[in-house]
Simulated assay, not measured.
Amino acid sequence: MENKSTTESASNYDHLEKMSSLELLNNINKEDQTVPFAVDKEIHSIKKLVDVVVSRMQEGGRLFYIGAGTSGRLGVLDASECPPTFGVSEDWVIGLIAGGDNALRHAVENAEDDLEQGWKDLDKFHISDKDVLVGIAASGTTPYVIGGVKKAREMGIATGCITCNKNSPLAAEVEYPIEVVVGPEFVTGSTRMKSGTAQKLVLNMISTASMIRMGRVKGNKMVDMQLSNKKLVHRGIKMIMEELDINEDEARRLLEEYRSVRKVLKFSRSRE
């Protein structure tokens, strides 16, 4: 007998079209406030997955995310933000979405229903047992994701998932399931809302905790961030000023010379 899907259960609210803007916003916000509490219940599960990611990365492995629709977009977003934030190469954290990059902006018909395509997309990156694969699906039933993680596990690849239903088919296929059950959505079945928020929080935790443990943060500073715009250059200058107790002009000169906050700090301290 199929488990009842929490993500598809009826909203706790009805007659939404009769609510004022203020009522809608207050009720949406009230529902959103429940999400961190649901994430908190899964901290130990998230910790297990982070430890595996760090272990594999220390051995030269990579982190893959795979998903469809909102879940896929969130995975691609998290992966794409790792290089500018932590200064890592673009092939260290890789996000794949059913239907390819076109699906980031446009719905691709039936892309998520192909049980074989997930592994085909992963195989293009020569994924191996050095890597970790995290399947993302609010429902936990997406064939594209389930097929990908199932084949990956058969190949000896460490697998985890982020889902918002308990005892889903996806969770049954992975070694490290994360099941953040946020309850019915404000708009029935609209998992871009609370479920998407929960997935984003967990993805932030996985990538940030992993990168910190891999030495990509010093103190509380993003010392390896890419200096790709004026705001980030200014942030880098401020970091150097604070760490070395020097004025802005000297900090700017050092950053222009070394083009990296970490290199500036390493060089300056080696001369002390």
Rank of each mutant, 00 (worst) to 15 (best):
R253I: 04
R259L: 13
V261M: 13
Y65S: 07
L265C: 14
P83D: 12
C82G: 11
D91T: 11
L115M: 08
A158S: 15
L254S: 14
P36K: 10
K4F: 10
M205H: 01
L254H: 14
S207E: 09
F267G: 02
G147R: 09
I46M: 02
E59P: 05
V54C: 08
E257T: 04
V261P: 11
K221G: 07
P177Y: 03
E90I: 04
L265V: 07
E8V: 06
K41W: 02
T85K: 14
P83W: 13
Y176R: 00
L115T: 09
G61H: 11
V233A: 02
F64T: 02
G67H: 08
T159K: 02
A98M: 02
V181I: 11
P84F: 01
Q226E: 14
A98G: 08
I237V: 15
I246C: 13
R153I: 04
V54W: 10
D129R: 07
E17K: 05
L74D: 10
F186W: 12
N26K: 12
E242T: 12
N247H: 14
T188C: 08
G215F: 07
S45F: 03
D129Q: 10
Q226F: 05
A111G: 09
Y65M: 06
K4C: 07
M57V: 01
P184M: 00
K151T: 13
V217N: 09
E179N: 00
D114I: 00
A137T: 03
A68W: 09
S80N: 14
F37V: 06
G148V: 06
N26L: 01
V233Y: 14
E42D: 04
N220I: 01
E109A: 13
M155S: 14
T188D: 06
V93G: 12
L96F: 05
G140C: 00
Q199V: 00
